[in-house]
Design a protein around this nucleic acid. Structure first.
Length: 104
DNA sequence: AAGATGACGCCCG
DNA sequence: CCGGGCGCCATCT
């Protein structure tokens, strides 16, 4: 499951950002924003810094959020205060069949 | 098995 | 724009 999410996250190109909900939905799990978080925390090498909250808000606490912002700017992402210019850098993913698993 | 938790998302004030 | 409240789901204790 996380495996799939990570795969989607890995598809996010540099200089682009995606939201948790976006990832979850593309992975086929609409509404699993929280699970996306666990996927990032787990042992893997995913570009966690490209994942932000809805509206491009950085939710990471303390230094982590600071570092994320720095990295994104380095990739070319512009920031509007504490947020990312979503309209410009929001990742436009392709409709990968949003197949929702039949949540039992 | 039940209760609490978490880098969330959306609605309301 | 910001803060608070409620709902979502898998994992942990």
């Amino acid at each position: 499951m996380f495996r799939k999410m990570l795969k989607v996250i890995a598809k996010v190109p540099q200089g682009r950002v995606a939201t948790y909900g976006q990832i979850a939905k593309l992975a086929g799990y609409h509404g699993y924003a929280r699970q996306v978080v666990w996927a990032l925390q787990g042992p893997h090498n995913a570009p966690w810094h490209r994942i932000v909250g809805a509206g491009g808000k950085i939710l990471l606490p303390g230094q982590a959020g600071l570092e994320q912002r720095m990295r994104l700017e380095m990739e070319g992402v512009r920031f509007s205060g504490s947020r990312v210019n979503m309209k410009e850098f929001a990742w436009q993913a392709k409709p990968a069949k949003s197949v929702r698993k039949k949540r039992k």
